[in-house]
Design a protein around this nucleic acid. Sequence first.
DNA 1: TACTAAAATGCAATCGATTGCATAAATTTA
DNA 2: TAAATTTATGCAATCGATTGCATTTTAGTA
Lengths: 342, 342
Amino acid sequence: MSPKKRTTIYDIAEKLKLNPSSVSRALNNNPSVNEATKKLVLKTANEMNYIRNTIASNLRTGLSKTIGVVVPQINQNFFSNVIAGIEDATYKQGYNIIICQSNELYEKEVQCINTLIDQHVDCIVISISVETTDHAHLQNAINRGIQMIQFDRVADELETLKVINDNEQASFDAVTHLIEQGYSRIALLEGPQNLDIFRQRKNGYLRALKEHNLPILTELMMENAWTKELSAEATRKLLGLQQPPDAIFASTSDFSALGVLEVATNMNLRVPEELGVCGYSNEHFSEITSPSITTIDQFSFYMGKTVADLYFQEMQNAHTEVIAKTISIKPKLIVRLSSRKK
Amino acid sequence: MSPKKRTTIYDIAEKLKLNPSSVSRALNNNPSVNEATKKLVLKTANEMNYIRNTIASNLRTGLSKTIGVVVPQINQNFFSNVIAGIEDATYKQGYNIIICQSNELYEKEVQCINTLIDQHVDCIVISISVETTDHAHLQNAINRGIQMIQFDRVADELETLKVINDNEQASFDAVTHLIEQGYSRIALLEGPQNLDIFRQRKNGYLRALKEHNLPILTELMMENAWTKELSAEATRKLLGLQQPPDAIFASTSDFSALGVLEVATNMNLRVPEELGVCGYSNEHFSEITSPSITTIDQFSFYMGKTVADLYFQEMQNAHTEVIAKTISIKPKLIVRLSSRKK
DNA sequence: TACTAAAATGCAATCGATTGCATAAATTTA
DNA sequence: TAAATTTATGCAATCGATTGCATTTTAGTA
């Protein structure tokens, strides 16, 4: 693996008896370069297998044309879709993305941010970890002039660009749907309430109950049921109640809904006849369980694209102060068998 | 968004009345710097909020401490797991990864490679697209001194480091399992044969049949059945034969196996009693279909770790020629209900 | 043909960190 | 105490591309 010296603009300049600056300008399509020389330079560069040294260029221009993305886990359907969307959009602009995972750990998230600052990324796109309550690390990046965009799980109090789902409304829609199907004792599986997405989903649930004049029963709201296992446990408790629920809204994920389904199956409860079930986030599998799971699609790929587009758009007015702006995407209720009672 | 000038080693040097070179050495823990000054520099750097400009550093050292990863799609369980594994390992070494997706298109793959060359990545990790038959773009990167590691879908003729699954053996194991369960007319759903992973799986299938003295029936081997839809179609053809198969090995993926299941269900064929089914790659959902799908686990996260570790290991002997080396991971057959006849 | 304006190119500094070599300071040895 | 080492620090070039300003070349005008 001989490191083979790369061709530089100096090599091209020498060959053409030009000044490196002219070569640089030619390559950057600067109007003050003669068309003929421009063509010649381009041709020669090509012949000599020239590739611009982005590092040198970035050093000089102070830009890195790189966007850092921090997510809890890459290998979760929602996040990998968002990333795919971001990549798709940034790629077209000649930008690269650097990916980091926080693994839902605050400490690792801080490290990720530091690495990205280190790399001089132009922008950080983040969905915070479940542990994150303090935001000094994000503020630090912002203070260093790095554009910040939060998505999905956002820290409300931090004034940045944000792209979120309208969780409250989606949740409201889901619960309303359950009510319309004739369910009246609807339980809620909640996620950690320090994350606003879970608070919003709870709010939507509460609002739907109120608007339909249903009582709010605290014994039907289970905290921290945000994995399949925790949800299964919560479901067992719920179904063991004197007056068990007739529907369960697993507001945390389809994995939770799956846990509900399994427990119900084991107890020989028929879904949807005896128990209605609704999940969240439209995982692949929700379509193929038996019964298939009613859920909410978050348009994750589109969300990624939106994030990237937002950055490029805001970049234009980089001279002016960036205003904290929030884009809210309306998720879509997907009704399947697990809740179709009528 | 004021661009706020970052602290440089010059600022530190000036403040301490030192030479920038000493500051640099101190920060890099160079032994020729006095312990006292080293401490002082570190302390001051910290106070001044100094962060090394990686770009400048990379320019000078000629390294980028960055690894480029090219996959067909990020949002596929297998690939996102591999990436998660790579990220996990590279992170610990202070390396970053840049992700690109080829979207299964040859043209886009070439562009990805060019971008990565542009970025001066130290290493490219790639799983080639289904369209890729020519490898000039990869050779080009290699010629430029970029370390290359192929994984999963590899171009055999290209002499690089490789991390693969032992597809032949896994496939052999799966088919052997079907035979042991009493199936004797076993059909094969094949993937595009220009990808060696699919050739190997076919070979494993053939070897298993031979070793058990079963006839090889060409009408039971369906080409290009590598999506759920194509597999469903192939399954319809197979089950419409005069002598239909009693088992189907969907060697391309669990999605294909899912297609098989759906067609079988529609035709009121009982699985596994009347039709055995085996998939590939242990997708999340394969566990929760009814019946659950027998499949093959590829240890994707571990595969990513292996790739990264391989790079760091080979980097040590960068002075010597890199030998083409192949690491083969043995996948594991996971027997579930869809093939358990006995 | 001489002269001005416009177009093209060259010069040299710059981005920030690193590093081989030279020099200065501190320490050891004779 | 002077000489010989050892240890710290400084100097200056370098990585490759970019860019403000100066200079040369070309085109256009009188």
